[in-house]
Design a protein around this nucleic acid. Structure first.
Lengths: 144, 144
DNA sequence: ACACTATTTATAACAATTATAAAATAATAT
DNA sequence: ATATTATTTTATAATTGTTATAAATAGTGT
């Protein structure tokens, strides 16, 4: 079992959340995958192991994880939310052709937050940033 | 009529889009408002003028405007998309209490794009960034 | 074992958005 | 101007992601 999973389970237990087999499996899947899956991706990936699991369970538990700070919800325009196990500060590049999401590290944009706060009078707590473009694979292929 | 509206209509005409009364009104409303409205906001705002207008018309035309580069769609997690008439490079602060959105100017984050591209091999074309916090009004009021 | 609470399941409801087809409107050519 | 054609609007239904509900199940503390 990975350290990340162990820590995550610990965090949940400490906040009084029960570790059910479904929760264990969803967390494990989130940690091991690199694909920033949708709720439905997770549901599909686990239906072999849990033939009777409901989609609601996936959504419920993703919310539980989000509230515990273990998981981030990424919301993009048209389609459904994607979920990202929180590791350390990183941002995303998103391929507009195929939807692939890749992480990259960059120092937090504290300066922008400070300016925003100064100019607007808001108390700024956090921000969101993504870059968009074309991934190497799609750059090779002819469009669509 | 504002210069912005005139320019927008010009842009549409040039790309072969007909200027219907509904389109004129939607554009006008988008330019004049400061509120980054949802499709439904627009629909409601114009139903006095166009009692028979369909919601689909609003959505259709917002897509037309978006494809013409006149309007930006802002997508946040839970609720519905908001639409922003494209003026010049600016970012948004969003109040997490009341949903208010306020603009602020900041030089484009070209450096981040460059690094993302360099690290991941993506061809990066643009980015998205917002800051979140509490607006002055909500900071005064007790929560909820 | 028993009562109590949390969780899962199954299903229905919901809300935002999109697709469809008919009617209306605007542009174009005659 | 009129007829023709293409576009747009309208009204409605369908779709999709997500959430709410209630019953069934499993875990926890006494």
């Amino acid at each position: 079992m990975s350290v990340q999973l162990k820590d995550a389970l610990e965090t949940l237990k400490d906040s009084g959340v029960r570790i059910t087999p479904q929760r264990h499996a969803i967390l494990e899947y989130l940690i091991q995958t690199m694909t920033h899956p949708t709720a439905d991706d997770i549901f599909k990936a686990l239906e072999g192991k849990f033939p009777n699991m409901s989609v609601a369970t996936v959504y419920n538990n993703l919310r539980v994880f989000r509230e515990a700070g273990l998981v981030k919800e990424l919301t993009y325009g048209d389609s459904s939310s994607r979920f990202d196990f929180v590791t350390s500060d990183h941002y995303h590049v998103i391929c507009e052709e195929c939807g692939k999401i890749v992480d990259f590290h960059y120092p937090g944009l504290d300066e922008v937050e400070a300016l925003a706060s100064h100019v607007t009078g808001f108390k700024v707590s956090h921000h969101r940033m993504e870059t968009y473009g074309t991934c190497p694979d799609c750059a090779k292929q002819p469009k669509h």
